[in-house]
Design a protein around this nucleic acid. Structure first.
Lengths: 261, 261
DNA sequence: GTTTCATGTATCGCAATGCAATACGATAAA
DNA sequence: TTTATCGTATTGCATTGCGATACATGAAAC
């Protein structure tokens, strides 16, 4: 139970490092500041281990320690890592300028999402309107099947891959109207295949309309998508199709050629 | 030499973890994808060590491995960490909505910078115009003395602290016109103290005008600032002062009260 | 004010774990 | 084919990280 994930007795596996990383992973949106005890509880590791790991992480600048409460928080190093990530991902460099233009042109929130296993992750976000916090910061992972970007990406994959995803990938209710019926999702993805874009409502947030287009690679498959979020209060289907869709597709298509074959 | 940083023989120090973290740190903007050999070279650790550490990092999802070239790259986990950071930093939650409004109102790039030792780090960026890549992604660290945000923050500190910073903090030439003369920087910070905002030109990029206001905490000291970057081609001093400065100051001041005392 | 609890910090002997040298295997260049 | 380069795998040794335990500090309970 406690160290259930220790896994491989492999000689190429450095357990101490893995444990340290697991301490980093213990932080999340609901728990972003912890005491030693809380960390110990969350990770299932004993107090001594946490003490040593935390000490090391702190010493190396990966955890900040509140001088009075002694509680631990993510440090600026966590942002520096994101900075490095951006330089390593060729898609970001190719897409960002175009996304900025699009965001400016539409005046609405534009996101760049990449597939990450069975989730999508928001790699770049350009918020234009106030929205809830989680929707304006990068690095958020969401079940791919529930997002317009995920469905747009999937729509470019083979029938078999799509089907496997639809059957097995995780779903979670974020709103009372999040689609949990896989048949319904299948139908929507089929439409997406035909249309070349995905549009969804109320999936992550009520009264949110999301529309996404895949960024298609040289092999015809997408692993990323451009997505736009708008409010259902001010946008109806027809207007989204007319005023957002064309530019969104243009942008996504204009990024495709920059992907190396 | 090789493992010069091994440092403390402390019993609370987990060397294997520290080494692993140093592998993560080996990546930067100029080297964002490496082979085992390159990593070994960069970190000064031997091949075996790198092999084990990389294996572990890969297994734990902190490094992606190109299936054909076997080269290693930052993974999406690096963005997830940034996501966590945002939840842990109360300033971001308080500031972001207001920054979005400001960005929309001005139609120019707005940044949130925090002090991080003797550098500032861009925590949030809202690009509105195309600019060079590094200026549009979060997590970038720059010498505080060379940035308008850094100077704005410093201007709220005590005379003694300011002086110490001006004398000892690092400087680096990013453009031919980056100010390297500490007396000149001192004069500029003195002006900033008097004015309540900082304005600089050509420091990080030629023909870039940056203007920043400190976000003042309950104790009168700032550790963060709101900054706006515009092009010198289209903005002269007078127009910046007239059209940008008031809203920028308003925004910075409106964030201050949300900082807990 | 003393007791009690909770939490952070420090110490220490043991052996499990990570170490570095080395050998193997593939792929690419010469 | 040869040679070089780079990723992968193995192994014996002792360094290093382990976890129980004891100490310190501060807050809450009574």
């Amino acid at each position: 139970m406690s160290d259930g994930g220790k896994a491989r007795r492999d000689t190429l596996f450095v357990g101490a490092l893995a444990k340290g990383l697991r301490v980093l992973r213990a932080f999340d949106e609901s728990k972003s500041e912890m005491s030693l005890g809380e960390l110990s509880q969350r990770t299932g590791m004993d107090k001594s281990a946490i003490q040593r790991l935390v000490n090391t992480l702190h010493h190396e600048g990966f955890l900040d320690k509140d001088p009075v409460t002694r509680r631990l928080r993510p440090s600026h190093a966590w942002l520096e890592l994101a900075y490095c990530y951006y330089w390593s991902d060729p898609l970001v460099g190719a897409a960002l300028p175009k996304l900025i233009d699009l965001s400016r042109q539409l005046g609405e929130t534009i996101n760049l999402a990449e597939i990450s296993g069975d989730h999508i992750i928001y790699v770049s976000r350009l918020p234009c309107k106030r929205t809830y916090f989680a929707a304006s910061i990068i690095g958020r992972r969401l079940p791919a099947l529930s997002t317009s970007a995920g469905r747009a990406i999937l729509s470019t994959w083979s029938q078999a891959e799509r089907e496997a995803a639809i059957e097995t990938w995780p779903l979670k209710a974020f709103t009372p109207r999040t689609t949990l019926d896989r048949d319904q999702i299948r139908r929507h993805i089929d439409e997406t295949v035909a249309n070349g874009f995905a549009m969804s409502r109320d999936q992550m947030l009520l009264n949110e309309v999301a529309i996404a287009a895949p960024i298609i690679g040289p092999d015809g498959r997408a692993f990323a998508g451009v997505q736009c979020s708008v409010s259902a209060y001010t946008w109806d289907d027809a207007r989204v199709r007319e005023e957002i869709l064309p530019s969104l597709l243009d942008t996504a298509n204009s990024i495709s050629p920059s992907l190396r074959g």
